[in-house]
C-alpha cells in the first residue's frame, strides 16, 4: 500500500457498494450504487463528521466501516491492515476494535435482555472472563456512562430515550474500541442529554484516544461535534477538511448548499424574533 501518515487510523480506497434489487412486478433486476469509488482517511483520536443529504451513502459507508456490510469493491485499511482481505476468523479480533452506535437505541438494544446482559454479551464472546468479572465490568461501564448500578437489572424498555442511548454507547464501549461510529446517534436527543453524551465522549476520547465518526445529515451538529468534516454526495466524498476551513472556505457546491441550510437555520430564529417584534 502507499505510505500513510503516522496518525492515520483508517484509510478507505476506491470503496464501492452496489445493491442489486428486483422490481416488484416484472422481477427484473436493477442496481443501486450507494458508494462509488469513495476515498477517505481518518486520523487517530480525531472526531470526524460525515455529513450529507439523505441518500448520499453515509449509513452505507458507516456499515461498511463497521464491518457489518461487505463492500462490492475497494479497500478498508484499519491500523495498516486491509480488513476486507481478512477471513471471518481473522476479522474476529478486529471487530472489537470498531464499534457502531445506531440512531434509534430502542431498536438497537435487545428488549428481552437486561442492561447487564446486554453489556456482558460482547465480553462473553470476545474474552475469556468469569461471570463475576463480566458483571463487574458491566457495572463499571454503567458508572462510566453515568447510569446507576441499580439499572443493571432493568430492561431497555425501563430507560428513557437518553438513558437508552447511553446504554447503547456503553455496549459499544464495552470492548474498548479504537473507532466508534455514531450513525445519527445524537440526532433524536434533547439538547441537555446530547450535551452530556458529547461531554462523555470527549472525556473518553481524551482518556482512551478514541477515534469518533459522527454520521450526520446536517452541518449544525457537525460544527459542534467534530474537528474534521467530510461531505458526502452521491456515494462519494466531495470535500474533506478541518471544520474551520470547511465552514470558512467551502469549495464544493454541495458543501455550500449544506452551509446555506445551516446558516438559514441559524438565522431563522433571529428572523422569527424580529418578525414577532413587528
Amino acid at each position: 500500500m502507499t505510505t500513510l501518515a503516522p496518525d492515520t487510523l483508517v484509510s478507505i480506497r476506491d470503496l464501492t457498494k452496489t445493491y442489486v434489487q428486483r422490481r416488484a412486478f416484472s422481477g427484473t433486476q436493477f442496481t443501486i450504487e450507494a458508494l462509488r469509488g469513495l476515498n477517505l482517511e481518518i486520523r487517530r483520536a480525531s472526531t470526524l463528521a460525515l455529513v450529507g443529504e439523505s441518500g448520499a451513502g453515509k449509513s452505507t459507508l458507516a456499515r461498511c466501516l463497521g464491518l457489518l456490510e461487505r463492500p462490492s469493491a475497494g479497500e478498508i485499511w484499519f491500523d495498516r491492515v486491509n480488513v476486507l482481505a481478512l477471513d471471518r476468523r481473522q476479522l474476529f479480533p478486529v471487530r472489537r476494535r470498531i464499534q457502531l452506535v445506531f440512531q434509534d437505541p430502542a431498536s438497537a438494544l435487545n428488549s428481552g435482555m437486561t442492561a447487564a446482559e446486554i453489556l456482558e454479551e460482547p465480553l462473553l464472546i470476545q474474552y475469556d472472563l468469569t461471570k463475576a468479572e463480566r458483571h463487574r465490568r458491566a457495572l463499571d461501564l454503567l458508572d462510566e456512562v453515568e447510569l446507576p448500578a441499580s439499572s443493571a437489572e432493568k430492561r431497555p424498555l425501563d430507560f428513557s430515550g437518553g438513558q437508552r442511548q447511553r446504554l447503547a454507547i456503553a455496549r459499544a464501549l464495552m470492548l474498548r474500541p479504537e473507532l466508534l461510529i455514531l450513525d445519527e446517534a445524537l440526532s433524536n436527543l434533547d439538547l441537555a442529554t446530547r450535551d452530556s453524551i458529547v461531554d462523555l465522549l470527549d472525556a473518553l476520547q481524551a482518556e482512551q484516544g478514541l477515534t469518533l465518526v459522527h454520521v450526520l445529515h446536517e452541518l449544525r451538529l457537525a460544527s459542534q461535534l467534530a474537528s474534521d468534516v467530510a461531505v458526502m454526495f452521491d456515494g462519494q466524498i466531495v470535500e474533506h477538511g478541518s471544520a474551520d476551513r470547511l465552514f470558512s472556505r467551502p469549495e464544493h457546491p454541495c458543501t455550500r448548499a449544506l452551509l446555506r441550510g445551516f446558516r438559514s437555520s441559524q438565522e431563522a430564529p433571529e428572523a422569527m424574533h424580529v418578525e414577532a417584534l413587528g
Binding site: 457502531l100 438497537a108 428481552g112 454479551e121 464472546i125 455496549r171 470492548l175
Partner: peptide
C-alpha cells in the same frame, strides 16, 4: 433490526445470533 447488526458488530457467532437473539425477539 439494528440490535442484530450490533450483535454482529460484536463478533457474536451467527448461530448464537439466530437462536439466542433473533428467535426470542
Amino acid at each position: 433490526s439494528p440490535f442484530i447488526r450490533a450483535a454482529r458488530g460484536h463478533g457474536i457467532p451467527r448461530s448464537r445470533i439466530l437462536w439466542r437473539f433473533a428467535l426470542p425477539a
